[in-house]
Computed example of a mutant assay.
Amino acid sequence: MVRVTTTDRRTALLTGAVLTALALAACGTETRDRATEGRGTKAAVPAPPKKETVQGLPGMPPVLDPKDVYAADRPNKLSPVVKDFPSRVYVPNTESDTVSVIDPKTYKIIETIPVGRQPQHVVPSWDLKTLWVNNNRGHTLTPIDPKTGKAGKEVEVHDPYNLYFTPNGKHAVVMASLDRELVFRDPHTMKRIKTEPVTCYGVNHADFSLDGRYFIVSCEFSGELLKVDTEKMKVVGQQKLPFDGAMPQDVKISPDGKRFYVADMTAHGMWVLDGDKFDTPKLLPTGKGCHGLYVSRDSREMYVSNRGEGSVSVFDFTRNKLTKKWHLPDGGSPDMGGVSADGKVLWLSGRYDAEVYAIDTRTGTQLARIPVGSGPHGLAVYPQPGRYSLGHTGIFR
């Protein structure tokens, strides 16, 4: 017979209690774990989404927002390079061989700069430091220092109807309209690097894809479009617009990079196409003599100048439709231009009327009508927001 003492009973009770507690704890933990697994909350903190990036042209500044190519162009978001430049409007007078310089605060001409024969456009350089006047029939470029407003020594460049810069800043691209050439040059010295002959007639305007790897070019006199590989400096696509007598002009890409818009003076509207596919474009009527395309500072709208009827159509990117049309009082011939740094004023040259228009972008009201030289064309509002320039009268990214 085994004798159980009081101490033994206490020890046994204590040991049993401990074992029971451990067992319950273990069961409880297992139950909670299984319950947690059942509710799917064991991995309650999801992995952060991968940031969408764009594999851009080598050497090109990174795309700030893959859904908005104009993300760097917000109101007054000036680069440190240009923040001290005075705000001016530079107007090339094609038939007067001058550039009128307007103070946008007073709407007054403060200087008239003599340049070469038939200046067509005033073009900001890729690095934002120089304005190049394209003296088309003078076969020269006149550099203007936007800090001082003074013109420098002319540079010989044949048939510079228009001027663009590749998104990586590696090359300038001269639209040699009558020569039927795209001429790739050093962006600083303008030394010829490569000439790409084209079979279309009247190359004049362009814009680059979201990733900068290609650009679409309009050919005014043969009614065609080109697709050009930026890095290879080679035409890789060509098509005739589906309209008899088409005269394509300005080119702009949509904020999301999915569509290109091409103004057409005789089709009286914009052609819309997928640049990647380079498919057959569809026509969106805007007004007689559709000519220039300018994106608002919030990337929501695009202002379309209708040179043949003295109006500006407003296209809403978010709604994919035209929403407004502003008619200039007493008519006019709104042509090329740009938007003020704060986004409140649209500046356009009056090609056939020797004048410039300042238009309120909120109401469409004409703020000023300024007499200038004969044949005002591709005016530049400068400075504007953006990290670098793709050329023309100011395409900034």
Score class of each variant (00 low, 15 high):
V2A: 12
R9Y: 08
L14G: 03
L19E: 12
R34D: 11
A35H: 08
G38D: 13
P48N: 08
V54L: 04
M60P: 02
V63E: 02
A71N: 12
K77P: 05
L78I: 09
S79H: 09
V81T: 13
F85T: 11
S87I: 06
Y90F: 10
P104V: 14
K108I: 02
I110R: 10
T112S: 04
T112V: 11
P114N: 09
V115K: 02
V115C: 04
R117T: 10
H121A: 14
G138R: 03
L141V: 12
L141P: 11
D145Q: 09
E156Y: 12
E156I: 04
P167F: 01
N168K: 07
G169D: 04
H171L: 12
M175N: 08
S177N: 10
D179G: 14
E181F: 10
M190D: 05
K191E: 14
I193D: 10
Y201I: 11
E224C: 09
T230F: 00
T230R: 03
L241G: 15
Q249P: 04
V251M: 02
I253H: 03
P255Q: 07
F260C: 03
H268W: 11
G269W: 06
T286C: 13
H291C: 06
Y294K: 12
R297P: 15
R307E: 08
R307M: 05
G310A: 07
S313F: 12
D316H: 09
F317H: 11
L322E: 11
P329D: 14
S333W: 05
S333P: 08
P334R: 05
P334E: 07
D335P: 00
L346P: 09
S349T: 06
D353F: 02
A354Y: 00
T365N: 14
T365M: 11
P371A: 06
A380P: 04
H392S: 09
I395E: 12
